[in-house]
């Protein structure tokens, strides 16, 4: 069994309104030193396939659904569990 951990985040330079709102709220809660918050999406995908095949699938998943290359970048980690 494979476990793929995928983090999809906004590219540097793409405005992150959700992060800004959270940063503002943290400041209001008294965490004044917080200067920036980036919000990302974390997927854990479990795949019942050999590693090579699984990795290929993940590439396809990213391309077909999980990211929009105009605004997103991603990190992938695959482990056997």
């Amino acid at each position: 069994m494979l476990k793929a951990t995928i983090v999809v985040k906004l590219k540097e330079g793409v405005d992150d309104p959700e992060g800004k709102t959270i940063k503002h709220s943290l400041n209001l809660l008294g965490f004044e030193p917080v200067v920036r918050v980036n919000v990302a999406r974390h997927y854990e995908i479990f795949i019942d396939a050999p590693r090579e095949e699984g990795e290929k699938m993940i590439e396809e998943m990213l391309r077909k659904l999980l990211i929009n290359p105009v605004i997103h970048e991603y990190e992938v980690r695959v482990e056997e569990i």
Binding site: V14, K20, V70, I71
Partner: peptide, 25 residues
Amino acid sequence: ELGLLPGTDGISDVPEAALATNESN
């Protein structure tokens, strides 16, 4: 998301644009 818009050069296989979260969040 389909790549049919903005379609500056017809149809694109990958998205050429995004409709991202509103600035106001």
